[in-house]
Design a protein around this nucleic acid. Structure first.
Lengths: 240, 240
DNA sequence: TAGTGGTCTAGACCACCCC
DNA sequence: GGGTGGTCTAGACCACTAA
């Protein structure tokens, strides 16, 4: 049983996306909604808070709650929730993972520091070429996992979805990620696996992914040829 | 008079950053905090919600609230809150703005659609080279403003801070932004104003910035030489 | 002045962790 | 079983907008 505010926010989001609450229009006030859903006004407000951080509505004291006409911008191409994993992110599309390297080794000083582990605590080093079918989209991922946190990882998992193994088989939850996006010149790997021409720029997303308890378990660099991928995000001002 | 939950979250954040609540430690439970600050537990929780979305703490039902050891990662280089404007973002550093072009013109079809204006509603077109002093950091900005929303913009404002004009003089507030980050090959402008070598990749941030009422007022592309700038961000999973 | 959203309370119940 | 955080309530007061 989900929380009430979650169910209500899901319902209101649906009404906006389905056009029952059209863009630019006022939606019912919080008192009406609390009567309709038979909850307290606080619970309605909490539901609206979620919709607001998603950029769908705009509230003004004394006036009401409006549907923003930008509410339907959604379905962004590379919407950056990378900790969902590429497999989930590209849902509906089939992904082929070509495992180029799968090793277990000791981290160098920098990597040990990033993953907050000791120098004698091993890490998995995995390089994969991911191919999104029917899309001509190729991605090159250099990934390290702390073996102490993600035990039993195998090349078989790497061929499918590592995140599925971590979440379903190991029962771990992700807490968030720290990311750096940058452009780079292509290297030999990129030429080979991304079909880069000699001077084609590369877009790299470097990330550290954390478990819910704050422990970093993954460090990765995901490289894309400049003309195949971009990252989009929505930033909503808090307050109001 | 700020809201209580805001004051409390500011105070708790300070305690974490100052080390009064050390990394990895448990902070006082919500009942203790509500007694200390003389507010209800709901208000304490709302304050902690803010700190949690900032990635400083981790809460576990039945167990308590911990300071994450990643809490001090802050001070990221190009932390992506671009709607603050470069001037504010680079606070402490002096910025020189070299106005390359300042025009008012009619938008083409695509731009009119992006800014949600009519084809006969004029826009300011501004190209600026921004130079962060002592940093050798150069940025090339191509910007369009809807003239109907940002009246009275002048070349003088462009030499200083346009955002300051919008916020202080016009009294407008920003609601958020939609961004796309991508890599690109350098063009003639980049060679000239970013000191790009012939094949140096460029990192471009394309953004649409909205006012609080959801109206888009700015479309811009900010270009940086690949080795001078990266964008970092923190993504925290909701829930828990 | 009526109606809106923002904040806050005091208390309640629940799910969960740890002892 | 005792303590934690998550949710929810019913009502209150306030700030603001609009008529």
């Amino acid at each position: 049983m989900a929380a009430k505010y979650k169910e209500i926010s899901d319902e209101i989001r649906r009404r906006i996306l389905d056009g029952e609450y059209p863009a630019e229009s006022l939606i019912p006030d919080q008192n009406s909604l609390s009567k309709e859903f038979e909850v307290s006004r606080m619970t309605v407000k909490k539901a609206l808070d979620i919709i607001a951080t998603e950029g769908l509505i705009y509230r003004q004291r004394g006036s009401g709650t409006y549907v923003l006409k930008t509410a339907l911008l959604g379905n962004r191409d590379g919407y950056l929730k990378e900790y969902e994993g590429l497999t989930k992110q590209m849902k509906g599309k089939s992904i082929k993972s070509n495992v180029i390297q799968f090793d277990i080794e000791f981290p160098d000083e920098e990597l040990a520091s990033i993953l907050m582990i000791e120098a004698n605590s091993p890490v998995y080093k995995i390089i994969r070429q991911r191919i999104v079918e029917g899309n001509d989209l190729k991605i090159l991922e250099h990934t390290y996992y702390a073996a102490s946190l993600i035990p039993g990882l195998s090349k078989e998992h790497a061929k499918k979805s590592i995140y599925e193994y971590i979440q379903k088989d190991l029962g771990l939850s992700f807490g968030g990620a720290f990311r750096k996006i940058q452009a780079d010149k292509p290297n030999e790997f990129d030429h080979k696996y991304l079909d880069c021409k000699e001077h084609d720029p590369v877009l790299e997303v470097e990330q550290i992914v954390y478990l819910k308890n704050g422990k970093p378990f993954e460090y990765s660099r995901s490289r894309n040829r400049f003309d195949t991928r971009s990252y989009t995000m929505v930033d909503v001002q808090r307050d109001s």
